[in-house]
């Protein structure tokens, strides 16, 4: 039995009196203590999926199971699930203490028990001593921590997070990513996290479900999604990629830019798309006997850790990340190992 399971979830909304399908049959299972990220561009349906799990929306079709029980009709306040909202949604008329204590007050805990737990939770989010502060006097990062504390104090089985770090600056966001991940591990709570930031998803998640246009396109571990993207959309959405169209007439042999390459994939179709990660291409001064391509360096940008170079072969421009740099105008050979080539079926929509 799965911990949380979504079965064939569909959701229709009326936008300007026209029915639009936001979710087109979502199937998703989440294990206990897992950090699952719903990753996708805006409008992909990831927030709607989260809201259905939280109970703020009801699915038009399909079921939501929690520990094997259908919770489709359970209101939010009766679910063992808490949410951290996108804009924090702190109660503006209460101070920090009352915000964090809210859930326990509702559940009629004793004053001393509430005081104890608030103190513990505030120290968990590194905001001890902020009790009497007004929430409006806090910075974005602090408000975020209060929102997390307010949810965690209820000891939920599942925490839903809707782009919780979206409003923070880059440095703070990186810190919070690590903090959140540690919290999740230490507390043993299932996190369902919504973001459009692929880097955030890759660093934090146990499992990533990539969504687009109301569907889950691929679900897997970070490594899995990054290394084996199922289609060109995922490849281009997760990290930077070189995506090129080619043909495949035999198993493990693909042809693009008039050159044959050895690859690991069996034959998926005659016209295919090949994805190559920029860091998987090696630049060399001499050609190899296989999987090698000649090109001209047209741009070199220094990024600190490495260089990003653009190399032109025929009409195609390759993006390459490398620690070695080459001169603009120089002719080089690009070597792509057999495992570096990810061959995918041609997507009709792309």
């Amino acid at each position: 039995m799965e911990f949380i399971e979504l079965k064939n979830i569909e959701k229709n909304f009326y936008v300007n009196k026209q029915e639009r399908q936001i979710l087109k049959g979502i199937n998703l299972s989440i294990k206990e203590n897992e950090f699952l990220t719903l990753l996708g561009p805006s409008g992909s349906g990831k927030t709607t999926t989260l809201r259905i799990i939280g109970g703020f929306e009801t699915a038009s079709k399909g079921q939501v199971f929690f520990n094997g029980l259908d919770i489709g009709k359970t209101p939010p306040h009766k679910r063992a699930i808490n949410t951290v909202f996108q804009n924090y949604a702190l109660f503006p008329h209460m101070n920090v203490y009352d915000n964090v204590a809210y859930g326990l007050k509702i559940k009629k805990f004793s004053k001393s028990a509430i005081k104890d737990r608030v103190e513990k939770t505030l120290s968990l989010v590194n905001l001890s001593g902020f009790d009497k502060r007004s929430v409006k006097s806090l910075s974005g990062g602090q408000q975020q921590r209060i929102a997390i504390a307010r949810a965690l104090i209820n000891e939920p089985k599942v925490l839903l997070l809707d782009e919780p770090l979206g409003a923070l600056d880059l440095k703070l966001r990186k810190e919070m990513q690590i903090e959140l991940k540690n919290m999740q591990k230490n507390l043993g709570i299932t996190f369902i996290y919504v973001t459009h930031d692929q880097e955030e998803a890759l660093t934090m998640s146990d499992q990533i479900a990539v969504m687009n246009d109301g569907e889950i396109l691929q679900k897997g571990t970070s490594e899995n999604i990054y290394n084996e993207p199922k289609n060109a959309f995922i490849a281009s959405f997760i990290g930077t990629s070189n995506i090129i169209t080619g043909t495949m007439e035999r198993d493990r042999k693909v042809t693009f830019l008039k050159t044959d390459f050895e690859c690991v994939d069996p034959m998926p179709g005659s016209v295919v798309q090949i994805v190559v990660r920029p860091e998987d291409i090696e630049i060399e001064q001499t050609p190899r006997d296989r999987n090698s391509l000649k090109g001209e360096v047209i741009e070199v940008i220094f990024f600190g850790v490495n260089y990003e170079m653009k190399v032109k072969t025929g009409d195609f421009i390759w993006k390459i990340h490398s620690t070695k740099s080459y001169e603009r105008g120089q002719f080089v050979y690009l070597f792509m190992a057999t495992e570096a080539l990810h061959v995918m079926e041609m997507e009709r929509s792309l």
Binding site: H77, T83, A89, L90, Y102, I106, K107
Partner: peptide
């Protein structure tokens, strides 16, 4: 803000608690 009301429901308030608190 609709999200504030949702947050209150999320934290366990029933209709009366939501209104008075």
């Amino acid at each position: 803000d609709e999200r504030i009301i949702e947050a209150a429901r999320d934290l366990g308030s029933n209709r009366l608690q939501l209104f008075f608190r």
